[in-house]
Amino acid sequence: MTQQPAFKFKIGLITATIWDNDGFFSVDIARSYKNGEGDWCTTSAFSHNDLLNVAKCAERAENWISRKQAASSQ
Results as ranks from 00 to 15, higher is better:
43 T>D: 09
28 D>S: 06
61 A>M: 06
59 E>W: 03
66 S>V: 01
15 T>C: 10
42 T>S: 08
20 D>G: 01
36 G>L: 10
41 C>V: 10
63 N>G: 13
29 I>G: 01
45 A>M: 12
57 C>E: 13
62 E>F: 05
30 A>N: 05
15 T>R: 09
47 S>N: 15
38 G>F: 04
19 W>R: 01
25 F>L: 10
53 N>D: 14
32 S>P: 14
12 G>D: 15
18 I>W: 02
17 T>Y: 06
57 C>K: 10
71 A>R: 06
30 A>F: 02
26 S>A: 07
9 F>S: 05
3 Q>F: 06
22 D>V: 03
7 F>N: 07
41 C>E: 14
56 K>D: 13
64 W>F: 07
71 A>W: 09
54 V>H: 06
6 A>S: 13
49 N>G: 12
24 F>D: 13
67 R>Y: 11
65 I>D: 10
58 A>E: 07
50 D>R: 05
40 W>S: 09
68 K>W: 00
48 H>M: 11
24 F>P: 00
43 T>C: 12
31 R>Q: 10
73 S>H: 02
18 I>K: 01
73 S>Y: 05
63 N>L: 07
38 G>Q: 11
8 K>R: 11
33 Y>E: 02
42 T>G: 15
53 N>F: 09
28 D>N: 04
34 K>A: 02
1 M>T: 12
8 K>M: 09
15 T>N: 05
68 K>T: 08
6 A>N: 05
21 N>P: 09
32 S>Q: 11
28 D>E: 05
33 Y>G: 08
40 W>H: 14
12 G>S: 03
42 T>N: 14
60 R>G: 14
33 Y>D: 04
16 A>N: 08
73 S>W: 00
69 Q>F: 00
70 A>M: 10
39 D>C: 03
59 E>P: 11
59 E>Y: 07
45 A>F: 14
42 T>F: 01
10 K>P: 12
25 F>W: 01
63 N>C: 11
13 L>E: 12
33 Y>H: 04
54 V>S: 12
25 F>N: 10
21 N>K: 13
39 D>Y: 05
64 W>G: 06
7 F>D: 07
25 F>T: 12
22 D>H: 12
11 I>S: 06
47 S>M: 14
61 A>P: 00
39 D>A: 01
10 K>H: 05
31 R>V: 04
27 V>P: 03
65 I>E: 04
9 F>W: 02
24 F>M: 11
29 I>P: 00
32 S>A: 14
18 I>Q: 06
54 V>I: 15
60 R>E: 11
11 I>V: 02
40 W>Q: 10
14 I>Y: 15
67 R>K: 15
51 L>R: 07
29 I>N: 03
22 D>S: 09
